[in-house]
């Protein structure tokens, strides 16, 4: 960014740089810690919306029904900022069925509820292999799906985005909605992790 002297943005960037350099000199901060925050925040803030949706569905059967019937409308109840959700379809994991989401064509992803897709989601190997050999790919993620369980792979598109409603951890019956949301991970909502 080229800015000349006295341009407000340039003054701000100098102040920011000056503060950072003083904090680093005093040993109160490291450059790496700052970098780390930015990356981490982007990975956490996005999926947090989806986690809230999942936690409410676990606690509130009427909401869960609305969510599974019309994901887009149910999610509107939260008034998330950051953009419109395209048609959102939520698929439920049960003791008999495990769901996993992919976009075989590109990297369509329900970003309004899950934030940015992880790198591997855009990887051609994941996109083709999860359809061909889902059990093996899931095993590589550390998820063993028994052969008696039905496995459904959902292919996202520009029009329809899928999100997995994971099974509620069995030890969390009496946990609050907020605490439950903190346990929901991005990968579980894509279907490549269990909780």
């Amino acid at each position: 960014m080229s800015e000349h002297e006295n341009h407000p943005a340039s003054q701000q960037s100098i102040r920011a740089e000056a503060i950072e350099s003083l904090l680093i000199e005093k040993g109160l901060l490291s450059e790496d810690a700052v970098d780390e925050v930015i990356v981490q925040y982007n990975e956490r803030v996005g999926p947090m919306n989806g986690a809230k949706v999942v936690a409410r569905a676990w606690k509130d059967p009427a909401f869960k029904l609305r969510l599974l019937t019309d994901g887009t409308r149910a999610v509107e109840e939260f008034e998330f900022t950051g953009g419109q959700v395209e048609k959102l379809v939520v698929v439920e994991n049960t003791p008999a069925v495990h769901n996993v989401v992919v976009c075989t064509l590109c990297s369509c992803y329900p970003w309004a509820v899950l934030g940015l897709p992880p790198k591997w989601y855009k990887d051609p190997a994941y996109r083709s292999r999860i359809v061909r050999e889902p059990r093996r790919v899931l095993a590589e993620f550390g998820v063993q799906i028994s052969s008696s369980k039905e496995l459904r792979v959902w292919d996202s598109s520009a029009e329809i985005r899928y999100m997995v409603l994971p099974e509620m951890p069995s030890d969390s019956e009496s946990t609050s909605e907020e605490e439950l949301a903190a346990r929901v991970t991005r990968d579980a909502m894509i279907g490549v992790a269990l909780l």
């Binding site: 943005a9 960037s13 930015i38 982007n42």
Partner: peptide
């Protein structure tokens, strides 16, 4: 934010955000 991602219009904005959190 846009697309669930923080928007920084200039790198210094990301630095101050990261500093405060760190």
């Amino acid at each position: 934010m846009a697309n669930g991602e923080l928007i920084f219009e200039a790198p210094w904005q990301g630095r101050v955000f990261g500093m405060a959190r760190a």
